[in-house]
Write a protein that binds this DNA or RNA. Structure first.
Length: 875
RNA sequence: GGGGGAUUAGCUCAGUUGGUUCAGAGCGCCUGCCUUACAAGCAGGAUGUCGGCGGUUCGAAUCCGUCAUUCCCCA
């Protein structure tokens, strides 16, 4: 035949993807159907597809494709995120390579470069997702800096400002001295590093030769010290209460203050306090009204307060000051010390805590509905356990610093008209600002005299509007789309961004539309390599997803990724899983080849085929019900595994073997038709996971009318399951397995037909005998009332089967086997009896448990009797 | 330091309210097979102190306590 032996995915994939696109199957517009909406977690415009995206988007595509088959109007909105810091860093880097410095460009010139960069690279991930088969509505592709999106971001800023939820304030921020911007806590990575603990002595003011010794990891900040703090309970330092100390080199006197915050165990128990350069010290400073001395410039060099170190970098100064302190007798000793230091996620610069004037959102009140509606289950988390983490964070939510000292992003719509702390207004345009200034001051000033805030908004301040703004929900309130698609259904994302993104979307949802943004949040895990390390570009331990697709096929990779990826658990990824996926594709392919190769003749339908069809019908429906349930619980990888087993074990290994005609024999039309219908049902169930091969085979198994495509076929409906058929088949299955074992143990080839005799018990069900004869390859299957001597025998559900030895006899081996089984069964009976003789058990256990124990006892007794008979019959 | 998870076969994980879906699945492993859809395959098989120790109970992988190991988040 011309059908190849193995499935070749690549051609099929590009063919069917463009076919689906041409047919507009991914396109959605509001109609009478129930909406099913998913918004993609927008990847950064800087990114390339990595395994995390593969996992995340495969899950979304599975959900969307299944929803489409369930008759819903499925809409998956794709898009990208402008990613202020990361993108700006990339653009600066690229310009630097071309010999252009950012500082030489105007804001407008820089943004032009940035947009060029975005146009060139911004869509890479989305293009790659097409290779994976993602059925996004590409006509809806959004970008967080699209004009109307930007407008909604500014509107929200202005609105929150008017509501008093946005304020400007001095705060200790995480300062990135390289990027010259404040970072959110989430953008700071804490790493353990080997550093040194410096013990430095300070003279007690007014004393001749009295000293105290502090321990610090940052001796360069000594010049910014404004107090020494000790624990009031520390007996060692009672004598210092109320005194002052002199800062080395700076020769300033500073107070010695008392606070329980100080850990008496750490270092010397004397803490130097530098409120301008340490978060905890800043809090101490506020509490004790300390002076704040900022000794650094924005770029991490020291300013004039750094005395003779002015203009030098902080790390350079650390070395130099160590020497100077030593030379002048202040340095008592140094110790090796391990501590955690914050690094910029983007530039890897050491974060400098810095006091700075920033914009904040006050979160406490805004967060309340977002907390309540997750805790009460209006929004469901999968897995549920993440609610705990969420609650803890939301109950202790801190104000959100939303300004970033960057150009790429949404420029803050605040306009300054003077130098005073209050000389600004918040407005969308310069003209509106002019009006507001007039209202505020009574004076009309020139448009050109207004200076817009230089900073842009935190990227999350735009992405928190994503489920709303992709439908223009704020710029065109109440439009048809927002009414139809919002709230969206399911969000698939990583637990790492539960706070910066998920929580904030929920907040924005309730604040602006008075409703939840999505009903379910499915948290994926982190994709790790074999060694348990997170897959990342910097480690170089991630396979290139596109290479994987080329090697194993998109369907194979999708299966490989999902086959062992329960919600919320990390996914230890190995390419062997893709191999498993590819093998599964191939299995389906070959099942098709078998069916496709059958020649139809006008024959009577064999009994075995009739029974096989009845059984698979029942089996399919009971599995379908189970799979639907797994989907409803978002147990996606378990649903996939159930489908995998249904296809491989039940359909291929059992069903097809039962209906398969002999070599080069024709098949009857009825059986062929039933088989094709089953196969089509299987393709439907496989479609969400393996869309390409499903579509390919859907079109090969039958001639199709225009528009009869599996991607839009109806998901099978669960029909009533005939439990009796399932039960009856179990007996046949067990019997066949025993027959195969007899063959194996006696080295009897499958081709050799065997005789079998049955001594049946009362409840015996003979329905599947034709199947047993076919798959057991029996020449005869007769009833007997007597035991057959010198035969292999086994017992299934109390029925005794005999396969005469024929020529090959090994009575001793048989005897040994029977004795072992007898021994085991007696032991089992003993354990059951123990329970039944325990009066407390009999009194306390429910009736159904007792009944099952009694049945166990009866079964065991019967089996023992049979085994003993058999032993006796061996001659 | 605070909070939240996790610990079941060699690996990755299921295991609802304690009791026949109770010790499971997939992969891997072992043993036979080039059986006429598929060796990317077929058939068969083995594997566990359910992290340790206590407790509650007639009965614990499951509930409670405690210890250990480990991951994540926050400071």
């Amino acid at each position: 035949m011309e059908t190849p032996k193995t499935y070749e995915p690549l051609q099929a994939e590009s063919k069917w993807y463009s076919y689906w696109m041409d047919k507009g199957y991914f396109y959605s517009k509001p109609d009478h159907r129930e909406a099913y909406t998913v918004v993609i977690p927008p990847p950064n415009v800087t990114g390339v597809l990595h395994m995390g995206h593969m996992l995340n988007n495969t899950i979304q595509d599975v959900l969307v494709r299944r929803a489409r088959m369930l008759g819903k109007n499925a809409c998956w909105v794709p898009g990208t995120d402008h990613a202020s810091i990361a993108t700006e860093a990339k653009v600066v880097q690229k310009l630097r390579k071309e010999g252009i410095k950012k500082s030489d460009l105007s804001r407008e010139e820089f943004l032009k470069h940035a947009f060029e960069w975005k146009d060139k690279h911004g869509g890479i991930i989305l293009e790659q997702l097409k290779k994976l088969g993602c059925s996004c509505d590409w006509e809806r592709t959004s970008f967080t800096m699209d004009p109307s999106y930007s407008e909604s971001v500014l509107d929200v800023f202005i609105d929150l400002y008017k509501k008093g939820k946005i304020y400007r304030g001095v705060r200790m921020v995480n300062w990135d001295p390289e990027a010259l911007t404040a970072l959110s806590d989430e953008e700071v990575l804490h790493k353990e590093v080997n550093s040194k603990l410096f013990y430095v002595r300070y003279k007690i003011a007014g004393s001749e030769d009295e000293w105290l010794t502090i321990a610090t990891t940052r001796p360069e900040t000594i010049l910014g010290d404004t107090a020494i703090c000790i624990n009031p309970t520390d007996e060692r330092y009672k004598h210092l209460h109320g005194k002052q100390a002199v800062v080395p080199l700076a020769n300033r006197s500073i107070p010695i203050i008392l606070d329980e915050y100080v850990d008496t165990e750490f270092g010397t128990g004397c803490l130097k306090v530098t409120p301008a350069h340490d978060t905890n010290d800043y809090e101490l400073g506020k509490k004790h009204n300390l002076e704040t001395l900022d000794i650094f410039n924005a770029n991490g060099t020291l300013n004039e307060l750094g005395l003779h170190y002015a203009g030098k970098d902080r790390f350079e100064v650390r070395k130099a000051i160590e020497k100077e302190l030593y030379d002048k007798g202040y340095l008592v000793k140094t110790e090796d010390h391990i501590n955690k230091i914050g690094y910029s996620e983007r530039t890897d610069a050491v974060i400098e805590p810095r006091l700075s004037l920033q914009w904040f959102v006050s979160m406490k009140e805004l967060a309340q509905p977002a907390l309540d509606n997750v805790m009460n289950g209006n929004i469901k988390f999968h897995p549920d356990k993440f609610k705990n983490t969420y609650r803890h964070w939301m109950e202790n939510v801190k104000d959100w610093c939303i300004s970033r000292q960057l150009w790429w992003g949404h420029q803050i719509p605040a306009w300054y008209f003077g130098e005073g702390p209050d000389d600004y207004v918040v407005a969308k345009t310069r003209e509106e600002a002019q009006k507001l200034v007039a209202e505020k001051t009574g004076k009309t000033i020139d448009l050109s005299a207004l200076k817009q805030d230089e900073d842009v908004l935190d990227t999350w301040f735009s992405s928190w509007l994503w489920p709303i703004s992709v439908f223009d929900g704020l710029t065109k309130p109440g439009n048809d789309e927002i009414k139809y698609y919002y709230p969206t259904n399911d969000l698939v994302t990583a637990p790492e961004i539960m706070f910066f993104w998920v929580a904030r979307m929920i907040i924005a949802g309730y604040e602006y539309l008075g409703d939840l943004p999505f009903k379910n949040v499915y948290y994926t895990g982190i994709v790790r390599d074999k060694l348990g390390r997170k897959m990342s570009k910097s480690l170089g331990n991630s396979p290139d997803p596109i290479d994987l697709i080329e090697k194993y096929g998109a369907d194979g990779v999708r299966v490989g990724i999902l086959i062992s990826s329960p919600a919320g658990n990390d996914l230890p990824f190995d390419t062997s899983q893709c191999e498993q996926g590819r093998n599964f594709s191939n299995k389906i392919w070959n099942a098709f080849r078998l069916i496709d190769g059958w020649e139809v003749k006008d024959l009577e339908q064999p009994k075995s085929a009739q029974k096989a069809i009845a059984w698979f019908e029942a089996k399919f429906n009971s599995e379908l019900a189970e799979i639907n349930d797994l989907f409803d619980k978002f147990k996606i990888s378990e649903a996939l595994m159930a489908i995998y087993k249904l296809v491989w074990d039940d359909f291929c290994s059992w069903y097809l073997e039962m209906v398969k005609p002999g070599y080069e024999q024709p098949i009857d039309a009825k059986t062929l038709e039933s088989t094709k219908v089953f196969f089509e049902d299987i393709l439907k169930m496989v479609q969400p996971f393996m869309p390409f091969i499903a579509e390919e085979l859907w079109h090969q198994v039958r001639e199709r009318q225009e528009g009869d495509d599996v991607i839009i076929a109806s998901w099978p409906e669960v029909k009533k399951v005939d439990q009796a058929v399932l039960k009856g088949f179990e007996l046949a299955q067990e019997t066949i397995t025993h027959i195969r074992n007899v063959r194996k143990q006696n080295n009897i080839a499958n081709k050799v037909k065997m005789d079998m005799f049955l001594k049946k018990n009362a409840g015996y069900n003979d329905e599947f005998e034709p199947v047993v004869i076919k798959l057991g390859n029996l020449s005869q299957f007769e009833n007997t009332t007597d035991k057959i001597p010198n035969a292999n025998s086994f017992i299934v559900q109390g029925n005794e089967y005999f396969i005469p030895f024929g020529d090959s006899i090994d009575i001793e081996a048989e005897r040994k086997k029977l004795e072992e089984e007898l021994e085991y069964t007696k032991g089992f009976l003993n354990s059951v009896n123990k329970k039944l003789q325990n009066e407390k058990f009999v009194a306390g256990a429910p009736e159904q448990v007792l009944a099952s124990e009694r049945k166990k006892e009866a079964d065991a007794l019967q089996k023992i009797a049979l085994l003993e008979e058999k032993l006796a019959s061996l001659v």
